[in-house]
Amino acid sequence: MTYASTVSMKVNGERRDLEVDNRTSLLDALREHLHLTGTKKGCDHGQCGACTVLVNGVRINSCLTLAVMHDGDEVTTIEGLGQPDNLHPMQAAFVKHDGFQCGYCTPGQICSSVAVLEEIKANLPSHVTVSLTERTRISEAEIRERMSGNICRCGAYSNIVEAIVEAAGTRA
């Protein structure tokens, strides 16, 4: 056995074949191998959420998973959600509500918020869900709790929540 592996992923809809050191995190595979640097490295230890991406539609911290463990997976990064001239509704809502300042946590916030709306729709409970046996409903409290794995040191939280509420409304 060797210390490197080949892995094939579908990233933002495109098949990518990579030869990686087994140690390479999904985050570093995206940033350093595929040069998809929209996904950010804030802490590299699962403590900030800046590296959040969607894997098979589920949001995860790409810093705490190995690229080699994602053979065959579909990865969506911020670059795959929308482009400057073709923003995803969540990206547009972040711009409109100024849901960012330095911008470094922003791709993670946006990927996370897109997933949060899906998680609420799928009736997954959160720490602030009032009843475990009734349908989970979208609320600012639910958004704040579910977004808490995405730290924004600039402190744009109040605006981010407004952006997500708006995006949720547009989509519904």
């Binding site: 699962g46 995860i60 998680e119 409970p125 959160s126 475990l132 794995g149 995405n150």
Partner: peptide
């Protein structure tokens, strides 16, 4: 087993709990 559900969602973050 609501206690288990409650304890789980009190831990970590959504991203971490997904893994």
């Amino acid at each position: 087993y609501g206690l288990l559900s409650r304890a789980l969602v009190a831990g970590a973050s959504g991203q971490l709990r997904n893994k």
